[in-house]
Design a protein around this nucleic acid. Structure first.
Lengths: 232, 232
DNA sequence: CCTACCGATCGGTAGG
DNA sequence: CCTACCGATCGGTAGG
């Protein structure tokens, strides 16, 4: 990904606004993309990210509806109204978690496929996709995608459509490998149905997998491949 | 299962209490088991069941926390406080849905296995279990088990332990078939891990299956078997 | 099962 | 980002 080009008007010598200026300066209307780095008492982008991280953790533990914006504020050391400085509603915070989580997952999945190259055997492509998906779901940086799996119904219809676009692209990337495997006789179910079953099997691991149970993500991926792929 | 023996004191000629008596007669402390049939304006057991049915539907659509007891009352044509005549708390209603749903599922699953007999080939046992599970999840009388899958975290720890007992028995009944299939070489993953993946794959269908999509529950079961079971 | 009600909590906002 | 606050809603209950 490239760093976004600065617009001409926001070029070099722009003075850093102090806290007072930052407060009176219409904060609701930001330019699109990452918020620009404004030095307030705490770094702004970090606060936004921290809100999303803690919110995701709480949404996953207690559920979106049962988590109050006060819970989230307290978890990051803010006062009750302050999350609304960063997000215009509780719902927008949920949407940001899912949307940015899914975007990052789609990008890292594409990197995995690119690294493997288009001529890798489909068996290896699927193994890499499975392994990467477990990393997204269960790895040390996980959290946003599991929220998406459990809180889909908490989105508004418009938000759902928006996140679905990214999710569809993520899932569509599995089809070439599945179709190749079906063609080779290593996958016996219809690829479109197999994809749904396979995502179910993997996603469900969020509800039972514990890294301390002795199973590594590599071993878990291997078990999944053994279950789904028929060797001759 | 046997019908519970009546205690001596609650024998034959007990008069039906009228509406007034039913209202003043400590309604919170019922004997265990099904409520006895007391003729009020509406039949009591039916009202309780209707509350559970509508509550399950709402819990599944909007989520437990986002469903108010007023929503539930309105859905069955009661006023706001009336569900508390049948359940001592919102949480108790959720628990009843899961507990009674899981109990019924365990019983009908056992009937399926009994009908098949202990000498049926493991392949047929698994197919029957899968088919029955889809019936529970997606069939015309479904609803309670999907709520359990999505609202586990809304239970109190004690309620969780209680429902887990039944759920564990339900899942344990799959192990003999899976172990036999593994032994015969038709299941390549470890049976304990395979069971978790398989339940995930099947349970996930709640989020995507639509009977109008042209796929019957029989065809769905067949696809699942093709995916998991390796024929030689 | 209805009526009337309570205390608590919630999402959100104005104003600084 | 904090302070102080509002209107709405919620789970639950007493009393009949």
């Amino acid at each position: 990904m490239q760093t976004p080009k600065r617009t001409l008007s926001s070029s070099a010598a722009e003075p850093e606004p102090g806290p007072a200026a930052a407060a009176s300066d219409v904060p609701a209307r930001r330019p699109r993309g990452r918020p620009r780095k404004t030095i307030t008492e705490q770094d702004d982008g970090n606060r936004r990210r921290k809100l999303m991280d803690k919110a995701a953790k709480l949404f996953l533990t207690k559920g979106y509806a049962a988590t109050s914006t006060r819970d989230i504020a307290a978890a990051v050391g803010m006062h009750s109204g302050s999350p609304y400085y960063h997000f215009k509603s509780k719902s927008a915070l949920l949407h940001a978690v899912m949307s940015e989580g899914m975007t990052a997952a789609l990008e890292s999945q594409q990197e995995v496929l690119d690294r493997l190259g288009p001529d890798a055997p489909p068996h290896e492509q699927l193994r890499a996709l499975v392994r990467h998906h477990f990393e997204i779901l269960l790895g040390p940086r996980s959290g946003f995608i599991p929220v998406m799996l459990y809180e889909w119904r908490s989105l508004t219809p418009a938000q759902r459509r928006d996140v679905a676009r990214i999710k569809d692209a993520y899932e569509a990337a599995w089809m070439p490998a599945l179709q190749a495997l079906a063609h080779a006789g290593a996958l016996k179910a219809e690829p479109a149905v197999a994809r749904l079953f396979i995502f179910g099997a993997l996603n469900w691991a969020v509800s039972w997998f514990s890294p301390r149970k002795g199973l590594s993500l590599d071993a878990l991926s291997e078990q999944a491949m053994l279950l789904f792929i028929h060797h001759d």
